[in-house]
Amino acid sequence: MNILEFLAGINPVAASGAIVVLIGLWGILARPNLFKIAIAFTIMETGVNLIILSVGYIRGRTAPILDSAADAATASARMTDPVPQALVLTAIVIGLAVTALMLSYAVRLRAGGGASSIESYGEEKW
């Protein structure tokens, strides 16, 4: 299999999602600032959601919402997979709550007179 064929087979959504995940991972590992790590986590989370959703994506199909009762018979031939959408929907809301929890720990550490670099909190990271 030559390289052009390989590239043509890549799903653009999942590929960009994978690259966004890698960018987030790089931010988490390479930056010491607590707030920057939280930002990198939200970027990584967006990438993960893109990958999960791309699993159910079928080119050229419509959203899983019916117009009338008569549609139901042909629904599975015209619509994308609704299951990953339902999973991602709840994951996004949880993501906000987890980010807020992460940030309140950072605020607590700062309020106790601490630095905002993770390296001043012991050797846990490396």
């Binding site: 959601n49 959703l53 994506y57 199909r61 959203a63 899983p64 991602v88």
Partner: peptide, 9 residues
């Protein structure tokens, strides 16, 4: 990608 619910959220 045909996921308006997720897009809104």
């Amino acid at each position: 990608m045909g996921a308006p619910d997720v897009a809104m959220t």
